[in-house]
Amino acid sequence: MATPTSSTVPNVARSYDALRPKILQRLVETRASLDASLARLDEQAARGQLDAVLERIGNFIATGDLGLHRAFLHTFLAMRAAEAQHSGAVLAMLVAIGDTAADVAQEQATPDSAELTIMLTRVTASTARAVNDLIAEELERRSELLGELRTKEQKALDPA
C-alpha cells in the first residue's frame, strides 16, 4: 500500500504544517458529523483531541514510518475502547478526519496543494488499512482466548 515515501516529502510536510490550523478549524466546526463522542465535547477539549490526531498524521507524512503510525493507532484504539467506543466507529472517525484534511488541502489553489491532497488521501487509506489489521489481530487474539476458556470450562465440568 502507498505510504508517504515521495522525494518531495519535506515540502509536503511543510505545506501540511502550514495548513494544519485551517484543517483543525474545519474539524472543530464539523465535529458533530465526525463522531458522536466529539459532538458532546466542548470546543477546547475537541480541539485538543483533534489536534493530537493531526500531529500524528504530520509525523507520518514527515517520516513515512508506518510502524510508528501503527503504534499510535494501536494506542488510539485502546483509549477509545476504554471509553467503550466501537472500533468501527473509531475507524470511521479517523477516515472522516483524513478526508476533511484532504478536502481542505484540495480547496487551496496553491502549487503544493495537489500533491498534499494526494498525500493526505493516501495517508487515510494507510490508516484505514492499519486499523483493520489491528482490529483483526485483536479479534484473532480474543477468539483464541475464547477457545482456551471453553477448553478449561469443559475440563472443569468433566474432569475425567
Binding site: 466501537h86 472500533s87 468501527g88 466507529a89 475507524l91 470511521a92 477516515v95 483524513g98 478526508d99 494526494i118 488521501t121 493516501r122 487515510t124 487509506a125 484505514a128 488499512r129 486499523v131 483493520n132 482490529i135 483483526a136 479479534l139
Partner: peptide
C-alpha cells in the same frame, strides 16, 4: 483512493 477507503470501512464494520 477514497473508494478503496470505503471498502476498508465496510470491512472494518464487519470486523468490529
Amino acid at each position: 483512493s477514497r473508494a478503496l477507503v470505503v471498502a476498508e470501512l465496510a470491512i472494518g464494520g464487519l470486523l468490529s
